[in-house]
Design a protein around this nucleic acid. Sequence first.
DNA 1: AACAGTCTCAACCGCCTCGAG
DNA 2: TCTCGAGGCGGTTGAGACTGT
Length: 348
Amino acid sequence: MSRKPCCVGEGLKKGAWTIEEDKKLISYIHEHGEGGWRDIPQKAGLKRCGKSCRLRWTNYLKPEIKRGEFSSEEEQIIIMLHASRGNKWSAIAKHLPRRTDNEVKNYWNTHLKKRLIEQGIDPVTHKPLASNSNPKVITTPLENLHSLAASSSCKQYSRSSSMPSLSHLTNNDGTPVQVGSLSHKKRFKRSSSTSRLLNKVATKATSIKKILSASMDGNLRTTNGFSEQSSNVFLTNTLTEFDPFSQSPLYNEHEINANSDLGMDLGYDFSHFVEKLGRDHDHNEENKMNMEYDHDHDLLMSDVSQEVSSTSVDDQDNMLGKFEGWSNYLIDHADFVYDTESDSLEKA
DNA sequence: AACAGTCTCAACCGCCTCGAG
DNA sequence: TCTCGAGGCGGTTGAGACTGT
């Protein structure tokens, strides 16, 4: 049994809207407001179906809609939210003020998806493509930040401009970051403070990953006694909350599924992290890193059982603050560097 | 200048969700 | 509880713009 098409009618127009049609629709909605889309075409004198009117209004004519090029911050938000939510364009668009789901979807399909593929990242799973993957390596969003930082610190040029150097992006050991084979049609430049933070995170992403792994195994030892059981639980909990892939088989291999281990509800909104990341970091990058550490370190050592049972929105915000302090701590104070030769953590 | 190939994005299609009755 | 319809959502299409030769 097939469903009746929504817009069946004699003489209904399809295709691109004319200026006259737009004027009629805008005029009618200004006078009568949105809603009742089925009746709008007749009342507004349009030979369109109601659904077409609604789409035209919500995706194009609505005055608050922001049009034009996406900023690198918006790109990062889309990529990170897509990693955690998939093709939930409407949900993603809610975190991009004045952008429509259709616009986000189009931008993903025409720009961001291709860019990830060019970098060897599967745009569906946000993990390395099969041809590039190393089965021994656990891939996390922290790792993806390597490539994300490399690309999100860039912005498209027009098709005709020249390709700038990407040599400013370097790994921990000073070697250039591999950003994949960029198409000759895609030109980039660096920008944004958020990108700089991502770059900063990316330079230590591998080290952080190993530290996390060591923590999960209970083998983490640092100079300040950061290896207590409580902090392990917190790290497990935080990583699982933060990491959209924490439910993957790769993680299950390491038995770090905090959801089952701790019996908690993982309803955490990953986008809050992204928003907070950009907001706070834009506010005062260096000052913040220096001032918040002690506070967050204290929080890290606070009663973990409270964190485990926290599921409300307010508590999630607290968790985010602690995650940020924790990640800043790792970035600034981690004593370990991952040695690719020996596949082990070395004292920095 | 002309043509072919590629890219972009507005618009459409069909299914889903949810609230009213 | 069920049905129905309006609105929402994600996938897809195709016309027009753009680029390379």
